[in-house]
Amino acid sequence: MWGFLKSPEINLDTSGQVPMVDICELDLVYPNGHQALHNINLQIDKGEFVFLVGSTGSGKSSILKLLYRELHPSSGSVLVGGLDLGELARQEVPYLRRSVGVIFQDFRLLGNKTAAENVAYALEITGTPKRKIPSIVAQVLELVGLSDKSKRLPSELSGGEQQRVAIARSLVNKPSLLLADEPTGNLDPDSTWDIMQILSRVQNSGTTVVVATHNQQVVDLMRKRVLVMKRGHLVHDLARGAYRLDGRGSGLHVEQPRAPFSAVEVS
């Protein structure tokens, strides 16, 4: 309760000398005994764009939750920017989350605040001086292409626009790592591509991006590194461009090497 007396500073190592994400021999067992993740070993470098794919219950979301410390590993270690999350004290978690942005399928916006207010909220609660907030908000909304709709309430925005507000909010504290859990799960194809383009731009600005999705088309077309999860195991770690699903999405083709992609190349 007296946490305001001290504010632990969390500094992630963003020099690129250590991986942005370093998961080692990770097991995750839920209290009910269900083992959600088995011996995961995974490294993601600074500035990478990675897809986590797999069916529902394969453990994609669990990995993301471990990365923003919603879950603790049962054994093994999770390091983000060189910081061992297992050793993070409870009161330090908020400070980690200022460096790790998260977006969700359901956007999680505050319905009674406008787009700009939703974004400003993330700044207010992290103690940003009030006079600095409007300009930062305007910048981030510009980045996601919503400058003209900053005064709209979420209910007055389309799904894609709402997700863009959520992205703006997650970026406003300049995270080193952006996690997206099914960000396009509720969106039509056009909006999906909008979001993917924005996420690509985020990557280009130096932020590491991890997207969990089962939208195979997106993964197929984006041609990024792909991690395939199956029943809690990391079954494939495919380098950029080495992944393509068949038309029905029921199986996996691994083609290596592969001709330059001709269709919608986003980044």
């Binding site: 946490g3 305001f4 009161q91 908020p94 200022r98 999680r108 505050l110 609660i125 909010r169």
Partner: peptide
């Protein structure tokens, strides 16, 4: 609770929420 969840997600310190 939704608001609290969002506050926690974007990194509000616990005392700030409380």
């Amino acid at each position: 609770r939704k608001e609290i969840e969002i506050m926690q997600m974007v990194g509000a310190a616990e005392w700030f929420i409380r």
